[in-house]
């Protein structure tokens, strides 16, 4: 019995694939920094399950025709108890968390008939994007307190205000607005039953990358729950970056804005001149 389970651990399948739109660079660089959790040498008396995920690439490039993409992450359970597995009491939540960025939430009010930004709250770090895939509805997996402790789910991510001593009611209000706006723009999303078990130990998570997915280092994390109790976590890194030309332009614009501006102007002059030559009006 125990031997069979260690066998499973070594047969761990680390795969990942990416559909539509995004091009995976360096497809050869498979099984990346998928970390951690070396399979235990001797299986202890009490079975401890663990979870592993892997991505086929550690880098996604956004090309000029990028319009969002579906990211599939494969993962496996180690030492899964077949009985619990058959009862469907294992739950997996996979999260792809974007880079942390400071952000300002502003609120409009009507002043003399005109809608004006009157109030604002600055948050020092909020994940720029956050998408979740789960085996079941969140409330069916475990209770709200556990989620809050793990800072798991779009409602529970910890978003730190700049002014920690500020009015908590106001901070809550603006934080809720931040989550709401991010959800509306598709940057915070939850895909209930986006994680499916393919076999007793192998699972697949489908996550949605929004068209405006932020560039930077994203972190994929998988959480394993057994009978509603958090067991293990595993993570992998994923760099989302602009593809060659877009990346070059972006970097150039941000590091050498002056030269970028001069080139933009020259380009405009050339196009204006060409327009005059091609479409002569007089």
């Amino acid at each position: 019995m125990a031997a069979r389970q260690t066998g499973l651990a070594t047969a761990l399948l680390l795969l990942g694939c990416l559909a539509a739109g995004a091009q995976a660079q360096q497809p050869g660089a498979a099984v990346p920094a998928a970390p951690a959790e070396p399979a235990p040498q001797q299986v202890p008396a009490a079975i401890v399950e663990s979870i592993q995920i892997g991505l086929s690439t550690d880098r996604i490039s956004i090309t000029s025709d990028f319009s969002g993409a579906d990211l599939t992450i494969f993962g496996a359970l180690d030492n899964a108890d077949p009985l619990i597995n058959r009862q469907g009491r294992y739950d997996v939540i996979v999260v792809l968390e974007g880079p942390m960025r400071p952000i300002v939430v502003r609120k409009k009010e009507r002043v003399l008939g005109v809608w004006i930004n009157t109030d604002s709250e600055t948050f020092v770090s909020a994940p720029a994007s956050y998408s979740v895939a789960t085996t079941r509805a969140l409330q069916d997996i475990t209770d709200q307190n556990n989620f809050r402790q793990l800072a798991l789910g779009t409602d529970n991510i910890y978003i730190a205000p700049l002014d920690r001593t500020g009015d908590p009611v106001k901070i809550d209000e603006f934080e809720a607005a931040l989550r709401g706006l991010k959800r509306t723009s598709g940057l915070y999303s939850e895909n209930i039953s986006g994680v499916q078990f393919l076999t007793q130990s192998l699972f697949r998570a489908s996550l949605r990358l929004a068209p405006n997915v932020p560039v930077g280092t994203h972190k994929a994390r998988a959480f394993l729950f057994k009978n509603g109790i958090f067991v293990k976590e595993s993570s992998a890194q994923l760099a989302i970056q602009k593809a060659g030309f877009e990346q070059t332009l972006f970097r150039f614009a941000n590091t050498n804005g002056f030269a970028y501006g001069v080139i933009s102007v020259l380009l405009a002059i050339v196009i204006g001149w060409l327009g005059r030559v091609i479409f002569r009006r007089d």
Partner: peptide, 20 residues
Amino acid sequence: TIIHSATNHTVDVVLAVALM
């Protein structure tokens, strides 16, 4: 254009060319 580009990094040349 140059000043905006140098201080605010807000000139999108791809957008500008498409419009032009």
